[in-house]
């Protein structure tokens, strides 16, 4: 295409450009509807934190609360609520699969585990002498965009599959 310099020498023909403006207004209105939809989805939790974000997975030894959606480099949490019929303190072993660990950065764990050991499937975190109904919080930051999928296993319960979508 030949470069055009000073192409508008004659006055603007406002009447002839009515069609362009009508299309522009229509495109704007459509864009507003899309924007409103995104904001509603965000408030609901489909783009991050919100009422529909949280997912709860029940296991024999505890309940896992994970966010379905997170943001890359944004803070999120895994909350493990232990369940025990006994009033006595007990130990808890939590195994996190390597497929999850590869995609996240663990900022901190509260309470801190007494031991961390590498296993064939990932990392085993060991907590000693926990009160019944203790809440363990993993403060994490996803490092990569896309689906983060893996398993969390409490003691000898069957592994619970975790799936989380990370937005850029």
């Amino acid at each position: 295409m030949k470069r055009q310099r000073n192409k508008r020498r004659e006055p603007v023909d406002f009447a002839a450009e009515e069609t362009f403006h009508r299309r522009e207004w229509l495109a704007q209105r459509i864009g507003w509807v899309v924007l409103a939809g995104l904001l509603i989805a965000a408030c609901a939790g489909y783009l991050g934190n919100g009422p529909l974000t949280h997912r709860i997975v029940a296991t024999e030894n505890g309940v896992l609360k994970i966010d379905r959606f997170a943001h890359r480099d944004g803070p999120t949490q895994w909350i493990i609520q232990t369940t025990s019929n006994s009033a006595a303190r007990s130990d808890l072993a939590l195994q996190v699969s390597s497929s999850l660990l590869e995609r996240i950065k663990i900022e901190s764990i509260t309470p801190a585990p007494q031991d961390q050991a590498a296993t064939a499937n990932g990392v085993l975190f060991t907590f000693h002498s926990l009160d019944p109904q203790t809440q363990i919080v993993f403060h994490i930051e996803p490092q990569y965009v896309g689906w983060a999928e893996g398993e969390l296993q409490l003691n000898d319960s069957p592994p619970a599959t975790i799936k989380q979508f990370v937005y850029p």
Binding site: K2, K7, F14, F20, H21
Partner: peptide, 30 residues
């Protein structure tokens, strides 16, 4: 500079909103 259509899409175009003292109400509202 090379494609007038791209300039229109990116920058828009001037819009007449008042003519001989009379506001073009529909355009102004938009």
């Amino acid at each position: 500079l090379r494609f007038a259509g791209i300039e229109r899409v990116l920058d828009g175009m001037p819009l007449l909103i008042l003519e001989h003292g009379k506001p073009l109400v529909d355009r102004m509202a938009k």
